[in-house]
């Protein structure tokens, strides 16, 4: 066993070396710059949390990520359940639609949303011609645009882990709960929800973390008033060449992600072992 572990470790070495060289080292370098530039100390972090603009960007980032996660969860949950109880052939078709959207170029998809959401876009035109609205709705360059665009991109990442958990739930268990006297809502809250919780948490965490660092969609569909952290880091580094502050922002993002991951591992991965 020790020998085979040793051998397997050796096989994994190239990938580990690659990660060390091109991930760990640059991240550490960035961390160092955040406490070294322009001089030693935590002044970058202090500035980040004390400056109103930066603090607002941070708040906005978490707010958008939270909102996107919540909406994705609400929309994705029924889809994942439907996929789990659908006949296999039909489920495969729905799956390929989901995957196809995932594999389409991100930029192309985001530009497509711009076409749909802009003042003279299809959605506004349709609503105007139906007489539902009298002037175009502001659907782009604001929170609505970012949320729509990101939920669309994140949905597969919540559906896939949820579906994996739900597929392991025998639908007969829900029949049993019904005969035990549980109504639809009780069956959901007492049986289906607890049994799918690991998948929901895993999916939600994935979406939340991905959303925190998202760049393209907020940059294209968002407005200046609701900038997100990734955009701010890009500006700090590219336009202002402020590596110290940019590094500090990046490190805050990374720390939050690690904390959330630790939280998930600690509280929501144990249940799978009991089964």
């Amino acid at each position: 066993m020790a020998l085979s572990l040793d051998r397997n470790f050796r096989l994994a070495l190239p990938a580990l070396a690659f990660l060390l060289l091109f991930f760990i080292v640059p991240v550490l370098a960035l961390l160092l710059r955040s406490v070294m530039e322009p001089e030693w100390g935590f002044q970058n972090y202090a500035e980040l949390f004390a400056t109103n603009t930066y603090a607002r960007v941070m708040f906005n980032t978490f707010m958008v990520a939270g909102l996107v996660t919540l909406i994705s969860l609400l929309l994705g949950y029924p889809v994942a359940w439907l996929l789990a109880i659908m006949p296999r052939g039909l489920a495969n078709i729905v799956f390929s639609i989901i995957l196809l959207s995932m594999w389409t170029n991100l930029l192309a998809r985001t530009y497509a949303w711009m076409v749909l959401l802009q003042r003279t876009g299809i959605i506004n035109k349709a609503l105007l011609s139906l007489g539902i609205i009298s002037s175009p709705l502001p659907l782009i360059n604001n929170l609505i645009g970012v949320t729509i665009g990101m939920v669309y991109i994140m949905l597969p990442f919540i559906i896939l882990p949820l579906h994996a958990t739900m597929r392991a739930i025998d639908p007969v268990i829900l029949q049993a709960s019904a005969l035990c006297g549980a109504g639809k809502w009780q069956a959901f809250t007492r049986v289906l929800l607890p049994l799918s919780m690991t998948g929901a948490i895993a999916g939600a965490l994935m979406v939340f973390v991905m959303s925190l660092g998202y760049f393209v969609t907020p940059a294209l569909l968002g407005g200046t008033s609701n900038m997100m952290l990734a955009e701010m880091i890009a500006q700090l580094v590219q336009s202002l060449l402020n590596w110290g502050l940019g590094g500090a922002a990046a490190f805050v993002l990374l720390s939050v992600t690690m904390l959330l991951y630790a939280f998930q591992v600690r509280f929501f991965s144990g249940y799978a072992d009991i089964r």
Partner: peptide, 28 residues
Amino acid sequence: PNRRNIGMVFQRYTLFPHLSVAENVAFP
């Protein structure tokens, strides 16, 4: 079904896997 007040034991195992034996019996 949930208002028929009928008991049923199924062919497949249908205990709620996230609940203990006592909690399963307490469920209804």
